[in-house]
Design a protein around this nucleic acid. Structure first.
Lengths: 236, 236
DNA sequence: GCACCTGTCAAACGAAAGTTTCAAAACTTC
DNA sequence: GAAGTTTTGAAACTTTCGTTTGACAGGTGC
């Protein structure tokens, strides 16, 4: 179990992925070095290029693994009867999977980095964001079918923004309000639901400007192919 | 005016700062290279180490310049009579200075990067966020003095989150809703104000749990000293 | 036992990074 | 104009990066 060569194939591979996830989350694609990753994984320098082709392929694989849990949580059916209940259910699913403490912390951090950096693997991020946007759009339209198209976009963005903030920028809130205890998952879901639903009820329809909401949510279709770059520098 | 050496001292320095701002915003601290920066600035490679000590000192200087405009816009007095008016005024000041088209785009991008990366210059970010948090907290307390401390935090965070989203993650909204025209600054301020105020009116006070709001906003005090690292590697 | 494939290891590779050097050019001061 | 300071220039420096190499240890099938 602890010998140097003992069918370690998948073991070393997984240790590399875990170490790479942590270090990529800490320092980003450019800031992390293969020597750091292999050192933390307890593996040889050449192991990255052996198990994965190059650094960037390891990065995209790690990123894909980080975003999978969130993406699949978004596809579960909503069972609540009322649109208000479905809003809450949707937010609960999003935040629960995103803040799941059993998952390693670098999952959030990596996705957070990618949401900012549109460069390396933007299509993966679209996979994450598309379903919540679609479903939120639909539920919001059930509650307030009289809003303009732009109001829909701004409202959905506002709800998503609150979730994204607590998921990806929680450290800011913790730093700005050090005296206030951090909210539990339940409290978070309750507050954002109540806050957003109250706002939705009080919003005035902006009749004149903008078209009415279309029958279908005008959300970007996903790039299912997920066109991947071959190398970060396109050298080989 | 276009000769090789013509009192270029501060000229080269400023060109370096501008070029560094753009490239740092594009690629981050690690991704940007001094060769790229000096090439875009039309200067020699050694000029960065001559005018600034090293790469990191140039980075912090550029970051400080990027955040100054936003920080000072937050200190202007609020003139509106009603608390609701002051909320709108506050949001308008924040978004106007943050989205001011006359400022170079890399100001936003750099701050956006730093909001994510807690590593290099976190105190600068606190300078940016502290005043909006304080003032929002106070105005929200005027409107709804019955809310619990945690509800205040969540509400202020929610309002800030909407602003941050449109300032720093606008590309996500544009990508997710390609059919909807991006909102103007005026529309944005109107919507976030109306949305948040409607939510604030409809929020139920959570009486039992959490203490009531204190007389003073429990916002983190700024680190005025802004302790700066001497070098990215601490070598010399 | 032999060939074969899989993994691991230490070492080295070329490229690119940040930094330093030093001479020449421009500017300032007298 | 000469001396001294400031700024620029091209080149080289050291370090570190991602990647490659080739040898060697384990496992497997014949």
């Amino acid at each position: 179990m602890d010998g140097p060569h003992r069918g370690n194939g998948p073991v070393t591979r997984e240790k590399l992925i875990d170490a790479a996830g942590e270090i990529f989350a800490e320092k980003g694609l450019h800031g992390a070095s293969i020597r750091d990753i292999t050192k933390r994984a307890g593996a040889n320098i050449a192991s990255v290029n052996y198990h994965f082709h190059d650094k960037f392929e390891l990065y995209t694989l790690v990123l894909r693994q980080a975003h999978e849990g969130v993406a699949e949580a978004m596809n579960q059916p909503l069972r609540a009867d009322t649109p208000e209940g479905r809003v809450r259910e949707l937010l609960s699913a999003m935040l629960t999977s995103a803040l799941d403490p059993s998952r390693p912390k670098w999952h959030r951090q990596l996705v957070s980095r990618e949401l900012l950096d549109p460069t390396p693997a933007l299509d993966l991020m679209q996979d994450i964001m598309q379903r919540p946007c679609e479903r939120l759009w639909e539920v919001v339209r059930e509650i307030r079918p009289d809003l303009s198209e732009q109001q829909f976009m701004l409202t959905v963005s506002g709800v998503l923004a609150q979730c994204l903030f607590h998921v990806h920028h929680g450290h800011i809130a913790r730093r700005m309000f050090p005296g206030v205890s951090g909210p539990s998952l339940r409290t978070l879901v309750d507050h954002i639901s109540e806050f957003s639903l109250a706002a939705l009820r009080g919003l005035h329809a902006r009749g004149s400007r903008g078209r009415r909401s279309p029958a279908r949510a005008p959300v970007a279709r996903p790039t299912t192919g997920a066109k991947r770059r071959k190398s970060p520098r396109g050298k080989g």
